[in-house]
């Protein structure tokens, strides 16, 4: 799915990512782990076009995507969530969902006045789907609340549902279980596994090792901006370099 070749990025002399080559192939859920500051989020920012790489190439489904703008990458099928959850605070939960629909007819000015029927039909369909997804993540009772009023955990669920609403091929999750309570973590994991059954592909940054081990089929490990290991969860757990990186020996 995603392939990177020799990807590097530095910020004012600090090498955040150096010569990173990795290839996500065939696995439904791939994990990305590493100590703080190892370049995980930077890698996400590069893949999704929020930062341009200093050097290197990025491919998605065989097509080169580095140098594309964030919205182009998203339209190509990669949708991301954010480490510190970002909902649209002064919009309702339902609007937060509806806004994510790609290529809406009602977003062009002329169609507002000439194709109002098409828009109405489309809106009804989108609304139906949005309500289903809101129901599915258990936020139905909050659909008319401002998203900013939700608890942090609820916002994370909303963000996940919203990503799905955008109809991507692949979702990049940046720490989906950080800062939420254990029950919510359980819910989140079940939802992710359910989406996997539906055929969604994931690339996940996560610090909670239990979550990673349970969800992922393949794991990449970054340390100081370099890939130091990859493999199945079991192998990674026993890899001496990984243990060293985490314990900081």
């Amino acid at each position: 799915m995603i392939e990177t070749k020799g990807l590097s990025k530095s910020f004012g002399g600090i090498q955040a990512l150096s010569n990173c080559t990795l290839s996500l192939k065939g696995h439904a859920i791939t994990g990305l782990i590493g100590p703080n500051g190892s370049g995980k989020t930077t890698l996400f920012n590069l893949i999704t076009g929020f930062l341009p790489p200093d050097s290197g190439e990025i491919y998605f489904k065989g097509k080169r995507i580095d140098g594309r703008l964030p919205h182009e990458v998203a339209s190509a099928g990669i949708v991301r969530t954010f480490q510190l959850t970002r909902v649209l605070p002064k919009m309702t939960v339902l609007d937060n969902m509806l806004i994510a629909c790609p290529r809406q007819t009602g977003e062009t000015l002329s169609s507002l006045f000439f194709h109002s029927n098409t828009i109405r039909v489309e809106e009804n369909q989108n609304r139906k789907r949005a309500l289903e997804l809101i129901e599915w993540v258990g936020l139905s009772h909050l659909k008319d609340q401002w998203a900013g009023n939700l608890s942090y955990g609820q916002q994370k669920l909303l963000e996940l549902a919203r990503a799905l609403m955008a109809n991507p091929t692949m979702i990049l999750l940046d720490e989906p279980t950080a800062g939420i309570n254990p029950i919510m973590i359980q819910t989140m994991m079940e939802l992710i596994l359910k989406m996997k059954e539906w055929g969604m592909i994931f690339f996940i940054i996560e610090h909670n090792m239990d979550v990673i081990i349970e969800l992922c089929e393949w794991i990449f490990v970054l340390d100081n901006g370099e890939k130091i290991a990859e493999g199945k969860p079991k192998e990674i757990q026993q890899n001496p370099r990984v243990i060293e990186a985490y314990l900081g020996v």
């Binding site: 999704t48 991301r80 649209l88 994510a100 629909c101 007819t105 977003e107």
Partner: peptide, 27 residues
Amino acid sequence: IIIRSPLGRTLRGIREDEIVLMALGKN
């Protein structure tokens, strides 16, 4: 009409958080 349409919704979204809208594929 504009404000209450999907276009208006997207505009409000940009006001709230442009980054999110880009991550969702909006120009």
